[in-house]
């Protein structure tokens, strides 16, 4: 059961990574990247690294996504 959870998360991780690379819209790519970070955060948590998971959620999904969105808003739209 635990292994299955890992496999599902890793599959979703790879799928979101591919989706980020293939997205045509920059804002969509930034949001998909946040989803990737959340998936990775769950994976860290499940692997027994809650400190790293918290950092991933706060920095990877939070601050980085916001900075990407700010840059996109300032440049292209």
């Amino acid at each position: 059961m635990s292994e299955l959870f890992d496999v599902v998360l890793l599959t979703l991780l790879i799928l979101t990574a591919l989706a980020v690379a293939r997205a045509r819209d920059l804002a969509a790519a930034a949001i998909l990247f946040a989803a990737y970070s959340l998936m990775l955060c769950l994976l860290w948590l499940h692997r027994g690294a809650p400190d790293v998971a918290l950092t991933e959620a706060a920095v990877g999904a939070g601050v980085t996504t916001l900075l990407f969105l700010v840059v996109i808003a300032r440049t292209s739209r």
Binding site: T55, A58, V59, G62, L69, V70
Partner: peptide
């Protein structure tokens, strides 16, 4: 981690 949460909050408000 707390710094990222608080900093993200300021950025969110600015955005």
């Amino acid at each position: 981690q707390g710094a990222a949460i608080l900093g993200g909050l300021v950025i969110l408000n600015g955005f």
